[in-house]
Write a protein that binds this DNA or RNA. Structure first.
Lengths: 115, 115
DNA sequence: CGAATATATAATCAAATGCTTATTTGGTTA
DNA sequence: TAACCAAATAAGCATTTGATTATATATTCG
């Protein structure tokens, strides 16, 4: 819901608040490493499917992520054209990789792949 | 209350949440341009003195700002040695200057100066 | 010392947030 | 078309957050 082309305090605060949640920040880090669908997030986080959907909706509403349906699944990825994309890169660059979480899914045969 | 030397998701999310409040983000921007004491913030924001103190306390508890007593007043400034200082710079760099707010104080003779 | 001023803390409360369960929507597939 | 599955939405609830007012603490100054 980013209405302004330039950075302003209100919009920036909103984005920082969104990123200031452990679950969403982890989601963003994961998406910087892999595209992911909702059910994968549900497996990664010990959390209900609606909880995951609600987090993704907030990220989507503020334009930070894209969604794309592929078959049965809806995949989420970082929106590289967001005004705030460079902030996101700055922040997640230093965070520990979350690849291991997705690799656990792969090991359990739970990874969704639509290639 | 930053316990870890390295960036981790929990600590980073906490800092982003702190910055994800319009009042605190504006305070941080102001502090990047001027050192400020509590009563100046009270004049700048239309908000009670305890509300200001509580915001500053959160910023101080997470190590983002320093406080220094000078006479009757306690001045707050950005802690340039914080692990997260460069994040803060990245974010506030693009925000519109808040100098005009402090200049209004000066015009009203409300600016505190201890030089 | 005692009054005045600046700041911090305590207690309280309304609004916002993040989760849950139940249900609905939308696309796929037999 | 009907059953199935992924994801979204609705409703409800506990917790957190950010404000307020009242009070306490610290420092300065007459």
């Amino acid at each position: 819901m980013q209405t302004n082309e330039a950075f302003n305090i209100e919009g920036t605060a909103n984005v920082l608040k969104l990123l200031g949640d452990k679950t969403r920040l982890t989601m963003v880090k994961i998406m910087s490493e892999h595209e992911c669908c909702v059910c994968e997030f549900v497996d990664v986080f010990d959390m209900s499917q609606p909880a995951i959907s609600q987090h993704l909706r907030k990220l989507k509403d503020s334009g930070l992520v894209n969604e794309a349906r592929r078959g049965q699944w809806i995949f989420y990825s970082l929106n590289q054209t967001s005004l705030y994309y460079s902030y996101i890169l700055t922040v997640i660059k230093e965070l520990p990789s979350q690849n291991f979480k997705v690799e656990e899914l792969t090991a359990q045969g739970k990874r969704i792949c639509c290639d």
